[in-house]
């Protein structure tokens, strides 16, 4: 088979088919298209304002590694005027997080960005290893999800950040859309497709997703062709059955029709709740730690209390379990 030429520049050999457009393009055109589209998302969705401090959630995995690389590059290229920080969460899982944190530290040196690591043990007095030892592997993702979300907020507050940027990509968001659809969780179905979340409720930092329309395939190929240093491993405790099914479904429909992923996100954007039936929660501060919550105690403190008292987590915590984790 004769090598195909890039449909954009018609000069170099095509090296990939873009899932979003089915175009066959070369490496250089791919880099520009990839970076330009993320820039467009940042501009069109008003993700940042000049002078803001941005905490980039960095796990050492592919998405956050590419996010750090691209945000640093676009910040310089288009003069966003952002102050970038890396914030990593150490869940305390031996043989999983240690190696990926090393990847984060190498990124920190390469990109010369300040890094703050917050650990479950310093924040909550429990590592995930200790939690699993106590409660087993069954619902540990509930704890990890609640703790991680709050830990990232704490780390971002510590460095004085205005916003948190995460590496959630189009595939992740489409997956979450499917999960929230199956659960019938309408408010979350709408929220999960937004590029900025959390800025209307006041106390928590806004979270932005510059990769909202960026395909996982392209993130991985970008990292591969640019030889970016990332760490890939599965969490040793995570069965994540429900998300696993949604993920499999998204990957299967991608093979049949790659545009389905972005179409799933676009369709979720069209959902609207009836303002007459939606009730706004009032948020206050947790009486124990001061973190925002609609209850007396925040979810992290409830879970911590259950760990320390040998009781099953109560209502607030079990709701969280139903909703899954990672805050996607």
């Amino acid at each position: 088979m004769a090598p195909k030429l890039c449909v954009l520049c018609a000069a170099s050999r095509a090296c990939l088919r873009r899932p979003k457009t089915s175009e066959a393009i070369c490496k250089e055109c791919f880099y520009s298209a990839f970076e330009d589209e993320i820039h467009e998302t940042i501009v069109n969705e008003n993700l940042f304002k000049p002078g803001e401090k941005i905490a980039v959630g960095a796990s050492g995995g592919k998405d956050s590694t590419v996010l750090v690389h691209v945000l640093k590059l676009l910040n310089e290229r288009y003069e966003y005027g952002l102050d970038l920080f890396l914030v990593s969460v150490d869940e305390g899982i031996k043989g999983y997080r240690d190696d990926s944190l090393d990847a984060v530290k190498r990124n920190q040196q390469e990109y010369e960005l300040p890094l703050k690591i917050v650990s479950y043990s310093e924040l909550y007095g429990w590592t995930m290893d200790q939690i699993v030892e106590k409660i087993g592997k069954k619902s540990n993702c509930t704890y990890c999800g609640v703790f991680r979300r709050q830990a990232l907020d704490r780390g971002a507050e510590y460095v004085g950040a205005d916003k948190i940027a995460t590496g959630h990509n189009a595939d992740d968001i489409a997956e979450t859309v499917i999960m929230n659809f199956l659960r019938g969780d309408f408010p979350r179905l709408i929220r999960c497709s937004e590029a900025i979340t959390g800025d209307s409720v006041g106390d928590s930092l806004p979270r932005v997703k510059p990769f909202k329309y960026t395909y996982e395939k392209e993130i991985v190929l970008y990292a591969h062709y640019k030889s970016l240093d990332y760490f890939a491993t599965e969490c040793i405790y995570s069965p994540e059955a429900f998300r696993g099914h949604a993920r499999q479904f998204i990957k299967d429909i991608e093979v049949a029709r790659a545009r389905s992923i972005v179409d799933t996100i676009r369709s979720a954007e069209k959902f609207r709740t009836d303002p007459r039936t939606s009730s706004e929660q009032t948020l206050g501060a947790c009486v124990n730690c001061g973190y925002m919550t609609s209850q007396k105690l925040c979810k992290a403190c409830l879970l911590k209390q259950s760990l320390e008292s040998d009781q099953k987590p109560d209502q607030g915590a079990s709701q969280t379990k139903e909703r899954g984790y990672h805050g996607r």
Partner: peptide, 30 residues
């Protein structure tokens, strides 16, 4: 050989001596 197999006929591609085939999982956390 560092080119997306979707451009090369996927499963039907005929392997030649010296080819480099890369398998990259996108399924691990990021």
């Amino acid at each position: 050989n560092d080119v997306d197999w979707e451009l090369e006929g996927k499963e039907t591609y005929n392997l030649s001596s010296g080819d480099c085939i890369s398998f990259i999982s996108t399924l691990h956390g990021g």
